[in-house]
Design a protein around this nucleic acid. Structure first.
Lengths: 208, 208
DNA sequence: TCTTTTTCTGACCGATCGTGCAGAAATACC
DNA sequence: GGTATTTCTGCACGATCGGTCAGAAAAAGA
């Protein structure tokens, strides 16, 4: 009779099934959005019945919220790892590399966050104005320090970070458009080409 | 008895009501997406009844499709206006300026296209692989010519265009995140700051 | 093995939504 | 004013979807 989501230690089955539901939900939500996705679609993708889904989560919105929550930490980890101790240009290019890697390897996650923010991010809310703002402010300060030390050209660090987000995530979120425009031939190497391009541009922009 | 959408010349009322529906639909669709939006919401926003909406359009999807269609031409016009006869850097910076203006003045349209492409663009389809690809290829060729003439630094023109799309549209599509990170003070000037930043970066990247 | 707990399913409900349609109301036309 | 056409509404149907619940089935514990 005990609820599946209680505070006690989860059983093996609970861990496996919840993981399967998250995986299926990531598939469906990233493709159709929260409102476009149905519990049946998630259930099908997870190989479970709709009622069984509800047994493990209290509802569709709960799956969506918990999924977002569970992905957040990894999603911002590349920026978190940008270290003030490294060589400035190396650090920034490494950051770009990791963001491009995520666009290539985790496009579903990228689209999930993109859709959420695009539609008002009611479920992130304070995450943006508190945690994310703090992190960006902190790293922007590091970059600003490098600039006053003459180790980088002086540009706006916040907008630098925004432009890196924009350019790298573009290749995940709008991959369909990128492929359509590049055509079948060139789209094979689109991620490598994009990474080279972005890094090249940043090198020229940031060289003191 | 004649259908509202017949081939004959539309009446004044038809023009006004269809325009009102488009305006309302742009509001609702850009905020909630196709599946998240309801006919009632559109009807409310337009000041009409749901049944009256259906009188002017054959259904929800029809409104959405025709709305996208009606916005497409204006949406790509900044790129179309990039002229091979102008000064290379001026042309590109003007293009960036117009794209930023659109992010500032037409965020709903930007979000509408973003959501559509993000979710597979089933309604754009050939528009991307035919019309848009042709346009981008054409302008990329112009830029490439400038580069071989030594009037611009040599970088990949396609990815240059992608990066301009990404950086400029970012400030419309993810404005919520931008404002959250910048905070109330700095977000007042976010569009001007962004435009200065992007142009500055492109000048350094493109200077031969 | 017997009992207890966890896991799963079938049947179903209420709400929402897109849509069709007959006819009323308003407008345009002569 | 009278007729024809356009515009609009009331009513309601069918489908979809999220969620409930009792109880069956399976697993765990004794």
């Amino acid at each position: 009779m005990a609820k599946a989501g209680s505070t006690s230690r989860p059983t093996r089955i609970q861990r496996e099934k919840r993981r399967a539901i998250f995986e299926a939900a990531l598939d469906v939500f990233s493709e159709k959005g929260l409102r476009g996705a149905t519990l049946d679609q998630i259930a099908d993708a997870a190989g479970l019945s709709k009622q069984n889904i509800v047994y493990y989560f209290s509802g569709k919105e709960a799956i969506y919220s918990e999924l977002l929550e569970s992905l957040l930490e990894e999603w911002v980890s590349p920026l978190r790892d940008l270290s003030e101790d490294g060589e400035p240009l190396d650090e920034i290019l490494t950051y770009v590399g990791r963001k491009m890697e995520m666009s290539r390897e985790m496009p579903r996650e990228s689209r999930l966050f993109a859709t959420e923010i695009l539609h008002g991010a009611p479920r992130l809310g304070n995450m943006l104005t508190k945690d994310l703002k703090s992190l960006v402010d902190e790293k922007a300060a590091v970059i600003a320090t490098w600039m006053v030390e003459g180790r980088l050209a002086t540009i706006d660090p916040h907008h630098l970070i925004f432009s890196i987000w924009a350019m790298t995530q573009h290749y995940a979120d709008f991959d369909l458009q990128v492929q359509a425009v590049l055509g079948p031939v060139r789209s094979d190497t689109r991620f490598e080409d994009a990474e080279v391009f972005i890094k090249h541009m940043l090198v020229r922009a940031l060289h003191p």
